[in-house]
Design a protein around this nucleic acid. Structure first.
Ligand code: FES
Ligand code: FES
Lengths: 156, 156
DNA sequence: TTAAACAGGACAGAAAAGGTACTATTTGCG
DNA sequence: CGCAAATAGTACCTTTTCTGTCCTGTTTAA
């Protein structure tokens, strides 16, 4: 299925919400609990997503009281490929195992190595023109997440 | 990592070997044990790969004694996408769960549904022009599999 | 009739992902 | 100065998925 990580999907929602609330570079910050309420996800999960996004340099984390997160760039300038790389690792279709890789490099030849390169290049090229902003448009209409959000509010 | 199934990788090797041995449509057949020896993979694994390829209509299985497998088409006319679909399922980047899909369809709206469509279309388009023949070229130089094949022969 | 080979499904082990919790560090505020 | 809020990092457990193998049934040439 070429399934990508669920966290990648969550990340797009969180990023959309950040821009929607004006939490762009130089603006107001948004805390993880606030984002959790508005997106309907569990708070630890949102925190995990934001931490990974911070390591990737896609969001800026402001520490301390009155801290929070803010977009490092507008979503229109944020390639989707960077988000995928942050959560799913390098964009490469391969069945290669890390352990056998060293053995193949010393050998100089490998049946797997380089075989899928044209495929990977094609996919990278296909993803190069898509930004997170292209996906955030439809992220607003979220009945399911809204329902989850309501249940989240009621649980308090 | 967008990892594809190992079986997909095996499938390309098996398909390449089939064409290499002249086991094309209307020609000689190749048995699963033979293919296992030549590719260096375990025989049950090769059998599994061939069974799935048969269900997908990419190879033809001839039953009975003196049976075997043969390519349903030349590799140049076999899109890689079909192989991936056979082993990894539909080509779609999504975190959608099957269970919640029905609930979303009754609702008519879903935050996930349709959001990744532009990405999926881009990937499908990128894969549409690649055939298995494009990958089989470098599948011949297989020092690792050759070594495994030798060990396989010695074990008998 | 026998044996070879495909077809289909079932099963246990291994690997990866998802989610959660805990601790440490930073920083505004009284 | 001390407290509280919030991020940063890490570690762990649970669940799911993948992998590889095996078993039984069906077909067919010899
Ligand atoms: S198995 Fe990956 S480089 Fe050889
Ligand atoms: S979660 Fe997949 S259609 Fe709603």
């Amino acid at each position: 299925m070429l399934r990508l990580s669920k966290l990648t999907d969550y990340a797009v929602v969180v990023l959309s919400r950040l821009e929607q609330d004006g939490a762009v570079v130089g603006g107001q910050v948004q805390t993880a609990p606030e984002l959790a309420l508005h997106t309907g996800m569990a708070e630890p999960t949102v925190a995990k997503v934001l931490k990974i996004l911070g390591q990737a340099g896609l969001v800026e984390g402001v520490r301390g009281a009155r801290g929070g997160y803010r977009l490092a760039r507008p979503l229109a300038a944020m390639p989707l490929a960077e988000v995928i790389v942050a959560f799913d690792g390098p964009i490469a279709l391969t069945a290669c195992v890390d352990g056998s890789l060293s053995a193949c490099e010393t050998e100089g030849h490998c049946p797997v190595r380089g075989r899928w390169d044209p495929v990977n290049d094609a996919i990278r090229h296909a993803l190069s023109g898509i930004t997170v902003a292209d996906l955030s448009a439809s992220a607003g209409c979220a009945p399911m997440r809204a329902a989850a959000s309501i249940m989240n509010l009621m649980a308090e």
